[in-house]
Amino acid sequence: MAEDPETEFLPIVEETVSLSTRRVVTGRVRIATRTEELDHVLPAELSSVEVDVTRVSVDRKIDAIPDVVTEGELTIIPVVEERLVVTRELYLREEIHIRRVERTETVEVEATTRRQTSQIERLPADPAPFQNKDDQDDL
């Protein structure tokens, strides 16, 4: 087809776009932990039993050896002896009385525990070094 001098051409132009991504450090985080010790005072109950011994003089004639007797917190242990008379007779020489007394007291016991804490610090990003001038213009 021959070109007509009267015909004008209008060029058609099209733009295209391309997208690319790259990783950029925008910030950093520093985390530090430390262990601390906490001292506690804990209550504890301690029990103890005290024994009070009393000797009770009796010096009484008996026919048989008495048994050990316990009455509540009191225990009575008979102590006997034989005495020579024309005949043998038993005499209750003394009794030993043992009384138990229980006491309770609250004491404070020291104990140490540990726990960790952390500290988080946000740091700015290091500026990325540019490799050439063209990369700097793209920003």
Rank of each mutant, 00 (worst) to 15 (best):
E3R: 10
E3F: 08
D4I: 11
D4M: 11
D4G: 12
P5K: 11
P5F: 02
P5D: 03
E6N: 15
T7N: 13
T7A: 12
E8H: 13
F9V: 14
F9K: 15
P11N: 00
I12F: 11
V13G: 03
S18H: 12
L19W: 02
L19T: 12
L19F: 03
R23E: 15
V24P: 14
V24N: 15
V24R: 15
V25D: 14
V25H: 14
T26E: 14
G27L: 06
R30H: 03
E36V: 02
E37L: 04
L38C: 01
D39P: 07
D39Y: 10
H40Y: 09
P43R: 12
A44T: 05
E45F: 07
L46Y: 06
L46W: 09
S47M: 14
E50R: 13
D52I: 10
V53Y: 00
V53L: 07
S57T: 05
D59F: 07
R60V: 09
I62G: 07
D63E: 00
A64P: 01
I65C: 01
I65E: 08
I65M: 07
P66I: 02
P66N: 03
D67A: 13
V68W: 01
T70D: 03
E73V: 09
L74V: 13
L74M: 03
T75W: 04
T75D: 01
I77S: 11
I77M: 08
I77G: 00
P78K: 03
R83T: 05
R83H: 07
V85T: 13
V85P: 02
V86N: 14
L90A: 06
L90V: 05
E94R: 14
I96M: 07
I98V: 13
I98R: 15
R100L: 09
R100E: 12
V101E: 07
R103T: 14
T104L: 08
E105Q: 13
T106C: 03
T106S: 06
V107Y: 10
V109A: 08
E110S: 15
A111M: 09
A111I: 10
T112H: 15
T113I: 11
R114L: 11
R115H: 14
R115Y: 14
S118G: 09
I120C: 04
L123P: 05
P124Q: 14
D126C: 00
P127M: 02
A128I: 02
A128S: 00
F130H: 01
D135R: 00
D137S: 00
